[in-house]
Amino acid sequence: MTTPMRIFHSATILGLLTAAAVAAPMDEKTEGLTTIFDGSGADGWINNKTGEPISSTAVQDDGLNPHGVGAYVVLYKEPVKDFVLDFDYKLSPGCNSGIFLRVGNPKDPVMTGLEVAIDDTKGTGFHDSGAFYDLVKPEANTQKPASEWNHMTITAKGPIITVALNGEQVSTIDQSQFSEPGTRPDGSNHKFQNVAIADLVQEGYFGFQDHGQNCWYQNVRLKKLDQ
């Protein structure tokens, strides 16, 4: 015979399990991330110009440094569609760099992908850290000074891409709103005169830019949301 206490206990457990199941989706962005660079080697990273694996010299004490390896962008070897990209980065003083996303043609990342800017600046303009380069300004610049570590999370789902910098969401782009070449949704002009951002492929390569200065990336983790 089932006692009232046992019924109450079973119902309580069932309620807790149900609550946990409902709460689980809230953690989707932080669970299931796979490390694709841990500082131990350059396997899985390629030169955007040649398609060849990058030199092991790119792996330094502080992490993956794209500067000086002969690539404009050090790309992860596999194209991805919807994803969460999570990593730490550190800039040298005066550094100008960026993260390229969904690059359709590795030899032409500027015109076939999007760039999230990371620069040794303090502003909130179209070229400051957290901006979608020349397209969307960040709402805030939460980056730490040069030579200090920062944490960035980029989430891409369809045409919507968001950037969180040091725990604060700083920018969002809806590619579908950029339907005219060279024009932002508010009618102002941007530099990409020959391409409608809405028409860019939503599956491509991502990677870290060498724009002439040292910067380091560490603890790079990826979750593919479309799988």
Rank of each mutant, 00 (worst) to 15 (best):
E168K: 15
Q169L: 09
V59M: 02
V170C: 08
V195I: 14
N105G: 05
R102L: 05
L33A: 09
Q169R: 11
I154L: 08
N47Y: 08
A19E: 07
L222E: 05
R184C: 04
T34N: 11
A71T: 05
V103Y: 09
Q177S: 13
M152D: 01
T3D: 05
T112R: 10
G41I: 03
K223T: 00
G167N: 10
L64K: 04
D134M: 12
P106E: 09
F206L: 01
L225W: 07
K137F: 09
M5C: 02
K90V: 06
S56V: 04
R6T: 08
P138G: 11
I160L: 01
K144D: 05
D186Q: 00
G104I: 07
P93M: 15
S129E: 11
M26H: 08
Q213I: 03
Q143T: 13
G32K: 13
T12W: 11
H127T: 15
T121P: 09
G123H: 14
G113S: 09
I161H: 08
D128I: 10
D82A: 08
R6D: 03
Y89K: 02
Q227H: 06
V74N: 03
F8M: 13
G32W: 13
L14Y: 08
V84Q: 04
V59I: 03
T34R: 13
A117S: 15
S147I: 01
I118C: 05
G113N: 06
T183E: 11
V170D: 04
K223A: 09
T162Q: 01
G51R: 10
T121C: 13
E203R: 14
V195G: 09
L14N: 07
K90M: 14
I197G: 04
K224F: 00
A71D: 02
D119G: 06
H127R: 13
C95F: 10
P138R: 08
G15P: 07
P25D: 07
G32L: 12
G187Y: 06
M5A: 09
D120C: 08
T2L: 13
L17Y: 05
V170P: 10
D38E: 07
F100S: 06
Y89V: 04
A198I: 07
C215I: 03
